[in-house]
Amino acid sequence: MTSTAKTLPADAASIEKGSSLWADAFLRLKQNKLAMLGGIIVILILILCFIVAPILAMTGMDANAQDLTNRFAPIGEGKGGLGTDQLGRDLLMRVLEGGQISLLVAILATLMTVTIGVIYGGIAGYVGGRTGNIMMRIVDGLLAMPFLIIVILFREIISGHVDDLAKILIDDWGWNDNTVLRFANLIPLTIAIAGFGWLSMGRIVRSSAASLSQQEFVEAARSLGLSHRRILFRHILPNMLGPVIIYATLTIPSFILYEATLSFIGLGIEPPNSSWGKLIQEGANFLETNLTVLAIPAVMFSLTLFAFNFLGDGLRDALDPRASKD
């Protein structure tokens, strides 16, 4: 005993520390320059839209303040330094507040997607058997539907009800009408996208839950007499975090894209609110007279999609090295 103790290092600091899965993954992510760049851009855009924009708004800059004497100001002019649009509104504020709506829709819808997908897929995978099969058949059936068409229809239905609700809140409850109207425009779109967007997440979660619930440690937990809920939440869900995080990161840009597409064809965010899709659509009308009105939201929008996609791909490579081939 004493002789073996001597060979061990005396101080704890020199003991090689084992690295956890997450630390390992982070190391791999750090080596992927494109993914790191994507991550940094994502953080910058989030800071710009959700911290800088509200601060600028408090200092008196207004995305909807028109100045018809100063229309189509080029880059370098205007309060925000990015010029003004066809009504003399400050482009910097417009693109940041538009981004707020775009990102809010995408992030909220992704959170809903994760919640529904994890619960539904987790149950289907853990229960398995015929119930699980039926649950997945329903998902397959819904996945066979044309996504955008269903989302458009769904949004139209919800938005009528939400508008009624908004009217009640403003007229009877005396709520601030700007905020209420903004959310009344945003929420139906978010629910509609999430309502049909969770299906792939459900599938991914189900397949990993199904394979996890076959493994020894779950069997051990079962034989210890743990409740289903405890097994599901303490043993299976934490082990699915990887795929869920990867897929959620890749879901955000696709939802940003859906939001923009719908707003572009006039079935999404409506004036006076705006989003990147709406701004690009407005800008495209003035293509011949002024390019910045289109270019600024288009660049921000594309940059955001790039950043999220590179980050998501990098996360996949880092967390799931075996799947990194494609």
Partner: peptide
């Protein structure tokens, strides 16, 4: 091709 979508490319 995925990120620069039709309504940016078109114009």
């Amino acid at each position: 091709g995925i990120c620069i979508v039709a309504f940016v490319l078109g114009p």
